[in-house]
Simulated assay, not measured.
Amino acid sequence: MSTPPLALEIDHLSIGYAGSATPAVQDISFKLVAGTIACLLGPSGCGKTTLLRAIAGFLAPSHGEIHIGGQRMSTPGQVLSPEKRHVGVVFQDYALFPHLTVQENIEFGLHREKPVERAARSNGLLALIGLKDMGKRYPHELSGGQQQRVALARALAPRPALILLDEPFSNLDVELKERLTLEVRDILKAERMSAILVTHDQHEAFSMADEIGVMDNGVLQQWGSSYALYHQPNSRMVADFIGQGVFLPARRSAKCIEFELGELPIPEGAAIDAAELDILIRPDDIIHDDASPLQATVIRKAFRGADFLYTLALGSGAHVMALVPSHHNHAIGEPIGIRLELDHVMTFARK
Rank of each mutant, 00 (worst) to 15 (best):
S316E: 03
S62H: 07
R121L: 02
A95V: 12
G69I: 01
Y94R: 10
P293C: 00
S170R: 07
S62E: 08
A254K: 15
Q295N: 03
P158Y: 12
H327C: 03
C39W: 04
K189E: 11
A331V: 09
T36M: 06
K84D: 14
V174L: 15
E260L: 05
H330S: 10
L142T: 03
N217P: 06
M237N: 13
V345K: 02
H111E: 13
H140T: 10
I66N: 00
Q202Y: 10
A127V: 02
L312F: 06
S235P: 08
G77A: 06
G315I: 06
Q146W: 10
M193R: 00
L172H: 02
H344V: 08
E191W: 06
Q103E: 15
R137H: 09
S207F: 12
P249T: 15
D173E: 09
L277V: 07
G337D: 06
A127E: 13
G64W: 03
A322C: 12
K351G: 13
L342Y: 05
D27N: 14
L277T: 01
G213C: 04
I212H: 03
A155I: 01
P23D: 04
G130D: 00
P5T: 09
D240G: 12
G145Q: 11
D284T: 10
G135H: 09
D133P: 01
D290L: 07
Q232S: 12
K189T: 09
R121T: 14
H203I: 15
R252F: 02
A120P: 07
R118I: 12
Q222Y: 07
Q244K: 15
L197P: 03
T297G: 05
T49K: 04
R179N: 13
E178P: 02
L13C: 00
R121M: 07
D216E: 13
F348H: 01
R350I: 03
H200L: 04
V298Q: 09
G145D: 07
L156I: 12
L41F: 07
D186T: 14
A349E: 15
S81L: 13
D11T: 06
F30R: 03
I187V: 13
I163R: 06
Q221A: 08
A254M: 10
R137V: 07
I187F: 05
L40N: 01
G57C: 11
E191D: 08
V150Q: 01
H63M: 05
D93F: 15
P160D: 09
V238H: 11
L52Y: 04
P61I: 02
V102A: 03
L156C: 02
F206E: 07
H99F: 10
S226I: 08
L80K: 12
P4W: 03
M134W: 08
L13W: 00
P267Y: 02
Y227N: 11
S326W: 08
P4H: 02
H328L: 10
G124V: 04
H344F: 11
G135L: 06
M134L: 14
V150T: 05
D289M: 01
K301T: 12
R185K: 13
S44K: 03
G213L: 01
I336T: 03
V324N: 04
P76A: 01
V102G: 04
I272A: 02
A153G: 08
E167K: 06
F97Y: 15
Q244Y: 08
P293L: 10
G70M: 10
G16C: 00
H12C: 08
L40W: 08
Q71P: 03
N217K: 14
S143D: 06
